[in-house]
């Protein structure tokens, strides 16, 4: 046990860079996810038919296929995408990190869209009706009445997504992004003791996830409206 602790102390500095990369991936993916997911949710709920369908198609594709497949399609597939259409040599080549950002961002966006949609619908149609009756445009009603409530209601589901994203990022080591897992692979090769290394990895993820859970909990309490919960949001 002492040997494990000593070892963990020795390798922790080596992991630091990996931790930074993992957090960087998480933050960018979640941010992209909001930027994509919120409009997608609004399009799904309030958009005209075609926009609604577009949003649903995007959401279903990214929720219906494995993240790893998405990553491989983006990283290995997009550079040669032209050959599918009889245009060999035409494609989009992304570096490792950009490919990771794009994949995780689009994937998270699809899940976040569904969380936001659920929250928007939980706000209740009466709020929109009352806002429109005051003379607000649909856009004003969404911005000033619907979203302030929906975003609060979305926090519990969203915080799950945030916490999960820390762990989902681990797959990017398969395209050789040097995140925590990427570092672990290198260190395991260097020290020949994969068990200790992966225990260290598990502990690092556990600490990160615990901190993240704690942070979103604080956020949730800061933004709370007195006695306003999902149950009371029907009217």
């Amino acid at each position: 046990m002492d040997a494990l602790v000593t070892f963990l102390q020795r390798v922790t500095p080596d992991f630091l860079q990996g931790i930074v990369t993992t957090l960087y991936l998480t933050v960018v993916a979640l941010t992209l996810g909001v930027v994509i997911g919120l409009p997608a949710a609004l399009a799904r709920v309030y958009g005209p038919r075609w926009l609604h369908n577009l949003a649903v198609t995007y959401i279903e594709i990214f929720r219906g296929t494995p993240l790893l497949v998405q990553l491989f399609v983006v990283y290995y597939g997009l550079p040669a995408i032209g050959s599918l259409f009889g245009l060999p040599g035409v494609g989009i080549t992304l570096g490792r990190l950009p490919a990771a950002f794009v994949t995780l961002g689009l994937n998270s966006g699809a899940y976040q869209a569904e969380y936001f949609r659920g929250a928007i619908q939980a706000v209740g149609s009466g709020q929109m009706t009352a806002a429109r009756a005051l003379g607000m445009t649909k856009m004003q009603a969404i911005i000033y009445i619907i979203l302030p409530q929906a975003l609060r209601l979305a926090i519990p589901a969203w915080s799950n997504e945030a916490v999960s994203m820390i762990k989902y990022t681990a797959i990017v080591f398969l395209i050789a992004v040097p995140d925590i897992m990427g570092k672990a692979k290198i260190l395991a090769g260097r020290y020949f003791n994969p068990i200790e290394i992966y225990i260290a990895v598990a502990l690092i993820y556990l600490v990160l996830v615990t901190i993240a859970t704690w942070l979103v909990h604080i956020l949730e309490r800061r933004l709370a409206v007195p006695e306003y919960h999902l149950e009371s949001a029907r009217h």
Binding site: V123, G126, Q127, T129, A130, A131, A133, I145, P148, Q149, R152, V225, Y228, S232, A233, H235
Partner: peptide
């Protein structure tokens, strides 16, 4: 004025 009030909850 609505039957269900529809006050803005937030």
């Amino acid at each position: 004025v609505f039957q269900e009030f529809n006050l803005f909850n937030h």
